[in-house]
């Protein structure tokens, strides 16, 4: 069964300047354990589509199923964890306190919370930093903490909206590697919005190329790269060919816009 199933999904915002077609006829099927990247210029609807999966936006047409449920029910069933571009950690809570927040809201017991916090902190390699406050950590570490927070309640989908967009190249590379390792270890299904071609190619098993006005999918590329990917894979001909294909897809979308 597909984890995410979209058929003819449309989303139109009514604005003062008339309707804006953020998404038009989006068809997509994501299998369990896939790493799907959404790439495209701003206004192509990649974030809107991710938010629709999370039931933070409501499509105005088509059908969208998450784990076989409508997105709202899926959210209540804790189907996904969401990571935004900014870590959004509370300055008045420690790192463990921040990871604990969704668990408290969802009513996990204290002992259960402590066990889960320790486990996800280990996953993102932040063990030992639990008692620190967010301002005591670097930007990359803060973003790792926010990923841990999204993982803490065992959702099988991880939705990430340009999570490393605000970080510098070196930190970004390290976090990309760490994210791949985490994905292989946990087997989560990941939806990842980015506008970096190398990032999309390096991480994904499936790359969804989108284009704006109206926001739509122009190409879906299944990656031939093996799941085990050292950073050096980015110099291989396969990687470069794939990046080229994504770039072609992006150009194509622009051509008829």
């Amino acid at each position: 069964m597909a984890v995410i199933e979209a058929q003819g999904v449309c989303l139109t915002f009514q604005t003062a300047d008339g309707p804006v077609h953020a998404l038009k006829d989006v068809d997509l099927s994501v299998a369990p354990g896939e790493f799907v990247s959404f790439i495209g210029p701003s206004g192509c609807g990649k974030t809107t589509f991710l938010r629709s999966i999370a039931a933070l936006e409501t499509p105005t047409g088509g059908t969208l199923r998450v784990n076989g449920m409508d997105p709202d029910a899926a959210r209540r069933a804790r189907a996904y964890g969401y990571v935004f571009q900014a870590p959004g950690l509370y300055p008045w809570r420690t790192i463990s306190g921040n990871i604990s927040l969704p668990l408290e809201i969802m009513g996990f017991s204290k002992a259960d919370r402590a066990e889960r916090i320790a486990r996800v902190m280990d996953l993102v390699e932040l063990s030992g930093f639990g008692a620190k406050f967010p301002w005591q950590l670097s930007g990359g570490m803060q973003q790792r903490a926010s990923i841990a927070r999204a993982l803490a309640f065992d959702a099988d989908i991880l939705l990430m909206d340009e999570p490393f967009g605000a970080l510098d190249e070196i930190v970004r590379d390290r976090l990309n590697e760490a994210l791949l390792a985490l994905w292989r270890k946990t087997g989560k299904t990941i939806g990842f919005v980015t506008h970096s071609i190398p990032e999309a190619v390096y991480l994904s098993t499936k790359i969804v190329v989108m284009s704006p006005r109206p926001g739509r999918i122009t190409r879906i590329i299944d990656s031939p790269l093996p799941p085990d990917r050292p950073l050096e894979i980015r110099e291989t001909p396969e990687f470069i060919a794939l990046a080229h294909e994504v770039r072609e897809g992006l150009r194509e979308g622009h051509g008829d816009a």
Partner: peptide, 23 residues
């Protein structure tokens, strides 16, 4: 974004008030 995060955890109004808005 803070409000969206709360929504993604299906937090109720009381929880948003106590844990986010008041602090």
């Amino acid at each position: 974004m803070q409000m969206d995060l709360m929504r993604s955890w299906s937090a109720g109004r009381r929880q948003v008030l106590a844990r986010l808005r008041l602090p």
